[in-house]
Design a protein around this nucleic acid. Sequence first.
DNA 1: CGAGTACTTGAGGCTGTTCAAGGACTGTGG
DNA 2: CCACAGTCCTTGAACAGCCTCAAGTACTCG
Lengths: 241, 241
Amino acid sequence: MNAMIQPWATKALYPGAQKQPRPALFQGLTRREMNRIRHGFCEDQYTRGEPVLCDPIEMPFVGLVLCGALREDVRDAQGERRLFALTFAGELLSPLGPQRIGGQLSALEETVLLTCDRTGFDALVADIPHLRLNLLHLLQGQIAATHRWQTLLGRKSASERVASMLAWFHARHGGKDKLLLPVNRAELGQMSGLTLETVSRQIHALKKAGVIAVPQPTHIHVLDADALHALTGDAPARRAA
Amino acid sequence: MNAMIQPWATKALYPGAQKQPRPALFQGLTRREMNRIRHGFCEDQYTRGEPVLCDPIEMPFVGLVLCGALREDVRDAQGERRLFALTFAGELLSPLGPQRIGGQLSALEETVLLTCDRTGFDALVADIPHLRLNLLHLLQGQIAATHRWQTLLGRKSASERVASMLAWFHARHGGKDKLLLPVNRAELGQMSGLTLETVSRQIHALKKAGVIAVPQPTHIHVLDADALHALTGDAPARRAA
DNA sequence: CGAGTACTTGAGGCTGTTCAAGGACTGTGG
DNA sequence: CCACAGTCCTTGAACAGCCTCAAGTACTCG
């Protein structure tokens, strides 16, 4: 990994990384505060497949994927490595992270990671109280995401699982119609608790239903986002009485 | 809920609550520090079935079950409430908690809950640095537990799920042979993604295998903890090469 | 004793897995 | 350019595991 001190200079280095909106962690901050942050965070660049080394002792307190994507593998009871989760641009690494449970982070593509240890973050928060609020909101989102996965694994059918995964990827990529799956069928199955054959069959079913188009196995076009969401098995967020 | 200022006075009030070891959150603290903590935390008592009210705005930053047990229910896509998790004595409430995702905490029995908001906890940590370390360790344990549930729901068979739940309850109760299930078969099924019939059949299978005895449906005697653990499908924690 | 709740047990069917074969795409070397 | 190997994906058939539905049992409470 290449530690790069020149802050945010990477934008120029990654023509593929189109202008991203400011990460949610930094929403609502003044230009002056952003400048303060540039010096408090550490920006690292990873190439495709490169592992993200995390010192388990001084794990980054907050890690933010600026662009690219990370995969998180865990080792199961048989000692096999399997895909556990994905982290896309703009998203936070799980704080206290997966490392402790035998997890392993690696880059799926050219990826820029912004990290900050706890003491550094504490110092920043002292100057920029809003930062803590942003972090709390993101942590809530992570907990909600964990809960969604738990529901998926515990109670959803195969078709709902595959529809959910695609819908989530779709939403996390800003709702763009064209979706490039960063993992193969076997890994989709590992995340969703299905076999690769079942994943394949369910994707085929979605294609036949006209909800998606699949020009190439890893290229998904979402043709009907509403229908896709309807097939996830998640009710349209109802207000409790 | 009855806010009680008199610190730790509850011990006398709950003859049933046999002398608990000091909670992990307070491990290694001096008597003086414990005294400091008594004034920083708020101790509340709940009766069986009583909901734990959490102001979503100022949610307790850390909540610790001193004695008793809590259940956490969530509302699924169909709007049905179902049991999601249990919190036993000595354990932490999930920080940032379940409230945000429509969860609802309530007491399973006579329960004493120790809470502290973020600002109060920050103040305590300033005096007692060790407290933060303890909290971090507990949070790690929570993340590990989440991962175990995810593995259970995603990849385990019915028999492994039931064995795992019993083994976890057993371990969380200090390995005592006699285990009193605080929930019925249907709720065990809700947690593990099984039907109540399947839970019943698997418990029966464990009984017939001589691993447990079931004098009453909610009374489980663990006769062979090693065999029970072997049936969870979790490998005997191997050291990675 | 009757009602209610929780648990058990059985039969049958559906869903997803397993196993096996074949197809599509990519890169390599002649 | 083609042949070839390798990887990933698709598709089919048979099976197994868990669910659904339906009785029937055990315990508690009035």
